[in-house]
Write a protein that binds this DNA or RNA. Structure first.
Length: 420
RNA sequence: GGAGGGGUGGCAGAGCGGUUGAAUGCGCUUGUCUUGAAAACAAGUAUGGCGGUAACGUCAUCGCAGGUUCGAAUCCUGUCCCCUCCGCCA
């Protein structure tokens, strides 16, 4: 959510920034609602002050109120109720207006409205050859992936990993978690996957992206589309001890997405599915450090690709392509020779104070100072089925077997998936 | 699922219709004392809105939402969460 105070102070700044994302924010309406809000607050306060005075006097004098006082205070009470009702309407409308407005991009985010304008920051060493043996063929033949079983159990875009395929995924996840916790200083979290609507609103997924979320109506709980949602809710409504910043969390969880808006895209194999595992990094940081923290996280995700021996590239998204809650985003893509394409395996963003304002997460820079909103950053480190695809397709040998990256061997217990 | 108990400031914990934003203790900050620290003593110490350059004033907030009342932390209703016991269950 955007800061109402900041919008009122410099409306044009917000308008221009949001126009870069291809948005046409209702700034004028917001300003109008805000001045109405201020007026109503003042009107109500005058009446309330009077009522407080009279009540205090009666209490101090230990007497019964006079009939005139009762009549007058009844009237005052009615007026207060009317003003409060109108204020509530105005506040609701302000909220409804502000919640669907995305985070304005930072100044150094490149212009552009779609992925055409994204910028390749760097490409690693390594092959970008193709061999045409996509995972949906190779892995199915090896008996480690069963797309038909997935479809039969749950429908399209669900899949089953079997045997060494399942173990491989488990190994990749465990290895990545270990690198993050042991080398990058993250604390591992195992959060709930079903969350309240408020938590979903705090992260920015509601109200705007309802159609991509699974929900249980009976209990009014939502399935997380990424661990980011849960990690973002970890401190909602709380004041964080400044000495603990930056707080670094990592979690491996399934992500549940309806993918209704990507109908027809990536339909083959397991590039885009309704349920997938992902290791997610998440940080709460002091605002002045968030730029440097973002770069650090890009480094952390990159090193994983590197150690897996994958060719990867880092892309900076343009203003029109960054996610709703993001102010600046880098994607990491790995080369997969079977699908013959770059697969997005990580998206790393700074959300500035957009999420912490929504869920009222604060910190007090020093004793006695007033509270501030920390910044949040999130990044995949990394997304599993796609890394699994890349490991399979890159490891494919002439004889049809798959060679596993060395770093994973302590986790799998074997270095190869034998050809059939 | 059944029966009870409870949600008050950073924490613990009073208050149960009126001068209560809220006793007291702990914690924290500052000062006195001390070579320094500790102890002791003193003062201060919630968040947010609105007005104001500011000093300051004012309003709101005792889980949340309604209601009763001239007046609600205190009474009523609903709701969420926590705890205890019983039942069921991985």
């Amino acid at each position: 959510m955007l800061s109402l105070e900041q919008i009122v102070r410099d409306p044009e700044k917000f308008r221009t920034a949001l126009v870069r994302r291809g948005e046409d924010p209702p700034i004028d309406r917001i300003l109008e609602l805000d001045s109405r809000r201020k007026q109503l607050i003042q009107d109500g306060d005058v009446d309330r002050a009077r009522r407080n005075n009279v009540s205090k006097a009666i209490g101090a004098e230990k007497r019964k109120p006079t009939l005139e006082e009762i009549a007058e205070m009844r009237e005052t009470g009615e007026r207060i109720k009317t003003v409060e009702a109108e204020l509530a309407t105005v506040l609701t409308e302000l909220n409804v207006t502000l919640l669907p407005i995305p985070n304005p991009p930072l100044a150094d985010v490149p212009d552009g409205l779609d992925e055409e304008s994204n910028v390749i920051i760097r490409t690693s060493e390594g092959t970008t050859e193709t061999h045409g043996n996509a995972h949906w063929n190779v892995a199915t033949e090896l008996g480690i992936l069963d797309l038909e079983a997935g479809a039969s159990i749950s429908g399209a875009r669900f899949y089953v990993l079997k045997g060494k395929g399942a173990k491989l995924q488990r190994a990749i996840g465990a290895w990545m978690l270990d690198v993050h916790t042991e080398e990058h200083g993250y604390t591992e979290i195992d959060p709930p996957l079903l969350v309240r609507g408020e938590t979903m609103t705090g992260s920015g997924n509601l109200p705007k992206f309802k159609e991509n979320l699974y929900r249980d109506d009976e209990s009014d709980l939502w399935l997380v589309p990424t661990a980011e949602v849960a990690l973002n809710g970890l401190h909602q409504g709380k004041i964080i001890d400044p000495d603990t910043l930056p707080l670094k969390y990592v979690a491996q969880t399934p992500s549940f997405r309806k993918e209704q808006t990507s109908a027809g895209r990536d339909v083959r194999g397991i590039k885009r599915v309704h349920q997938f595992e992902k290791v997610e990094m998440f940080r709460y940081v002091k605002p002045e450090t968030s730029d440097e923290m973002l770069e650090e996280m890009v480094g952390e995700a990159s090193t994983l690709c590197e150690r897996l021996g994958l060719t990867y590239r880092v892309i900076q998204l343009c203003a029109g392509d960054i996610g709703f809650q993001s102010a600046k985003t880098y994607d990491i893509e790995v080369w997969s020779p079977g699908c013959a394409e770059w697969l997005e395996v990580s998206s790393i963003s700074t959300c500035t104070d957009f999420q912490t304002r929504r869920n009222n997460t604060r910190y007090r820079p020093e004793v006695g100072a007033s509270t501030k909103l920390p910044h949040t950053l999130n990044g995949s480190g990394l997304a599993l089925p796609r890394i699994w695809i890349a490991v399979i397709e890159n490891g494919l040998q002439e004889d049809g077997s798959i060679v596993i990256p060395e770093v994973l061997v302590p986790y799998t217990g074997w270095d190869r998936i034998e050809a059939k």
